[in-house]
Design a binder for these strands. Structure first.
Lengths: 194, 194, 194, 194
DNA sequence: AATGAATGAGTCTTCATTCAT
DNA sequence: GATGAATGAAGACTCATTCAT
């Protein structure tokens, strides 16, 4: 009985997780709704109770994943530290999120370059905007960074972190804290005001 | 009529260009072979004389595009200059290639995150490897850069350039030479040995 | 709340009316049970307390509508008048019923040409048979009409009235009493013993 | 070989005939495209080479059937005879068309009361308009008929003929020439100028 | 009685690929 | 080489119906 209470959003979340796991590996087109359903343990029609279409499911998953990433990123932030220290901590958190959630990383990379991102361009994780983007804006406004348009900053950072995380995953390597710091310093040195 | 004689490779290239243009705008899945054929002015069956499958067509197009990009990049290189100057020139060339060939940029970004890239992982532009990768390796070996794995370098660079080019294209802006230099310096400052 | 007590047949009738309104506009196939339920203000499952299936709902609605039409038709009948006068009055009533209840007219026309009519051929409005058919039979037996099989009479009459009513509705016209009389005289002149 | 020449429209016409036969018996909704294909001896996808959608197939079939009916109707017309004789001949031809092509009759009746008729309202058999409607207009303009709007005339006539043809078919009766004349005289007496 | 989440068979439609001409 | 009609497997999505609450 109590399980039910905890489970009241169970099917919707099961569908989201199923989609994330499959799309991360097979791509949008390679992942039929029927497989998503089977993998989630629900009937194909059930998906359509929660999401009006495959596109809507994908775009809602985008918010879902971005929210989780934002939480993971912000978790490592300690506002009492210096901005540079905070920046490094935030970057390390994002890097770790990618490495620990490769499906999420693959999904996000695919989403960004897909027609869904255009069609559902108005949908964005509020948490990510409020916390992460705000954090970067602070760095820009307080002249820690070069005078870069903030819309350029985000993909630049993402590109480097994704490249490093993909590399680590594909090589089945373990990166030491120092290795990760090295990666983040590529970003920091690139964008910091010299 | 005589044109046909001179045109003996015309159809193959027409198919490649048609594919590039359509996939750049609509994505792989959004671009049926029938549309590629019509857009190229050939019959659907004709494509299969030149390419055994859609996947093979896509992956051959990848080589084709990467070759053209390599040519564009190397074109601006003057080995008599300093490495830093050469690096900046090469980056600016790549940036310009993206801005002037948005279909190519979109295609490459999609390809990299698609199942095709895994399936045809063994196929790579020889020209790009020989010229561009070699150029970067030189920089690493001669200690112009931080001690970064070269496989990490390429996507890091690509990420920043694509981000900037996409941004320029989406905003319908014109970037001055100085703006572009600013972008490249993000890369340079990030990876150069401090 | 008390309304519910008076309303004990309310839901069943709400479903019937909801179905009539939607099917009249969208057709049987264009009207899902879920929409019928929502439009009636009940849950989808509730419909199945009152009707074992969609087909049964449709066929019961047929009886319901035919009953209401029979009442409207007979209402205008004054047995003390001449048969011809009564015939005209009855026809005018039916015509008016169609114009005032276009959903009912559309529903009936669709029903007659649908598989439901065959499947539920045994179901017919008793009121319509007893009152309206009987009235026509009287006309045949008393030689007011040509020697027409009564089963031919009904659709002939219906065809002309529906044609005229549809025409009026589609043109957003108002027909005067004289116009309507003209229509009925097409029927009368066609079937009366010359 | 010669067969092929005669067969060059074979598949398209096979699909039309298959659709007519199935929809006449099962209704639009009761007839899946897959069954139409199998019944026509073609693959499901083949239908979509000739018709962009089920709705387009249905509406093109409407033109096809109406054209054939118009031909059958006009075939029996002899312009040298009196208008009344011609009218009776034309009506008898239409009646016979219905009886000999019940699938066509059923299809037309369903089409008229379906959403397709609204959606594709702009499509009509040119042959029917030019020949049959023109013939009726002549009767109106030359005062053979009551002063009825011609848009009312057509469905009135259709209604009576369909009623009689359906009745004959459902009873498995044979109507003598005299019986059919009786039916037509219902129409004629109804609409002729008294 | 009433609910509405869940089901899954069935529908229309797409599209990579083949092959007779 | 070139064509494009034909194929049919596979996909997204719908909806009548059920059943636990």
């Amino acid at each position: 009985m109590n399980v039910q209470l905890h489970d009241c959003f169970g099917k919707k979340e099961a569908v989201l997780k199923s989609t994330l796991s499959l799309v991360g590996k097979q791509g949008f087109h390679g992942t039929p709704m029927s497989q998503i359903a089977k993998n989630a343990g629900v009937a194909a029609g059930t998906i359509y109770h929660y999401f009006p279409s495959k596109g809507a499911l994908i775009s809602e998953l985008y918010i879902y994943v971005k929210d989780r990433m934002a939480k993971a990123i912000i978790d490592g932030d300690d506002p009492s530290k210096s901005y540079k220290e905070r920046f490094f901590a935030v970057m390390v958190s994002q890097y770790r999120f990618y490495v620990e959630n490769p499906d999420s990383m693959n999904f996000l990379e695919q989403y960004i370059n897909s027609p869904y991102a255009q069609e559902y361009a108005h949908l964005e994780s509020q948490l990510f905007v409020e916390k992460v983007i705000t954090f970067f804006k602070y760095g820009i406004e307080n002249a820690y960074f070069k005078n870069i348009d903030p819309r350029l900053l985000a993909p630049t950072i993402r590109g480097t972190l994704v490249a490093a995380a993909s590399f680590q995953l594909s090589q089945h390597m373990l990166f030491s804290d120092e290795d990760i710091n090295e990666v983040v310093s590529i970003i920091w040195d690139g964008i910091k005001r010299q």
